[in-house]
C-alpha cells in the first residue's frame, strides 16, 4: 500500500488552521464549562429545591441526550434567533460548554462532598463563614482530587469537538473530511486526524499530571 504523504502536506495549512480552531473552541468550552459547572454544582448541592431541582434537570438533560443532537438544537434552533444568523463557532462553544458543564458540575459536587465534614466543622468553629470555609479550606483540597476527573472530561471534550464538523465548524476534522472528499482516500486523512487528536489529548493529560503533582 502506498501512503501519500503529499496529500497530507497539501492539506497541512488547513489542518493546522483547523487544529488551531479545535484548540480554541476546546479551551473556551473548558473554561466556560468549568465556570458554569461550578455554579450548577453548587446549585445542585443547595438545600432549596427551587435551586437544586432545575440544576438536577439540567444535568440530566445534558448527560442524557446525544451531543450531536444538542449541537443541532443550538446551531439551528437557538443561536439563529439570538444572533439573527447561524454562527457555527458560537453554536460549537455553546454546545460544548453547556454539555461539559453538566459533567463538571458532578465532578465539583463529588469532589466537594468527598472532603471530610470535619474540615468544614473546624473552619466553622474558627468563625469562618460558609464562603470562607469553601474558599480557604474545602475547595483547595477538593480541586486537587478533582484534577484526574477534570482531565478525563477535558479529553472527552477535545475528542467530541470532532462532531462539530457536522454543523460545518471548520475545525480540524472538518478539513480531514474535506481531504477525504477531494482525494477519495481514507487512510491518510483519518490517520492524520487520529494522530493530531492523540497529540492534543496526550499533552493535556501530561500537563494535568504535572499540575496535580505540583499541588
Amino acid at each position: 500500500m502506498d501512503f501519500r504523504f503529499d496529500i497530507i502536506w497539501d492539506y497541512a495549512p488547513l489542518l493546522l488552521k483547523g487544529t488551531g480552531l479545535t484548540i480554541g473552541i476546546s479551551a473556551a468550552s473548558i473554561l466556560l464549562g468549568a465556570v458554569f459547572g461550578l455554579a450548577i454544582g453548587f446549585g445542585k448541592m443547595a438545600r432549596s429545591r427551587l435551586l437544586n431541582w432545575p440544576m438536577g434537570a439540567y444535568i440530566n438533560f445534558f448527560r442524557g441526550t446525544p451531543l450531536i443532537v444538542q449541537a443541532m438544537i443550538f446551531h439551528f434552533a437557538i443561536i439563529p434567533p439570538i444572533l439573527g444568523t447561524t454562527n457555527a463557532i458560537a453554536a460549537a462553544i455553546t454546545t460544548l460548554s453547556f454539555n461539559s458543564a453538566a459533567y463538571m458540575a458532578e465532578i465539583y459536587r463529588a469532589g466537594i462532598q468527598s472532603i471530610d465534614p470535619g474540615q468544614k466543622e473546624a473552619a466553622y468553629s474558627l468563625g469562618m463563614s460558609h464562603g470562607q470555609a469553601m474558599r480557604f479550606v474545602i475547595l483547595p483540597q477538593a480541586i486537587k482530587r478533582m484534577i484526574p476527573a477534570f482531565g478525563n472530561e477535558f479529553i472527552v471534550l477535545i475528542k467530541d469537538s470532532a462532531m462539530l464538523a457536522y454543523i460545518a465548524v471548520p475545525e480540524m476534522f472538518y478539513w480531514v473530511n474535506a481531504m477525504k472528499g477531494q482525494y477519495m482516500r481514507v487512510w491518510e486523512p483519518y490517520l492524520t486526524a487520529a494522530v493530531i487528536y492523540f497529540i492534543l489529548t496526550y499533552s493535556l493529560s501530561k500537563l494535568l499530571q504535572y499540575i496535580e503533582r505540583r499541588m
Binding site: D116, G118, Q119, E121, A122, A123, Y124, S125, L126, G127, M128, S129, V137, Q141
Partner: peptide, 17 residues
C-alpha cells in the same frame, strides 16, 4: 460566625487543614 469566633473547639480527629 461572630459567636463561633469567640468559642474555640478541639475535635477528636484534630481536623487540621
Amino acid at each position: 460566625t461572630e459567636v463561633r469566633a469567640e468559642v474555640g473547639m478541639v475535635f477528636q480527629r484534630f481536623n487540621l487543614f
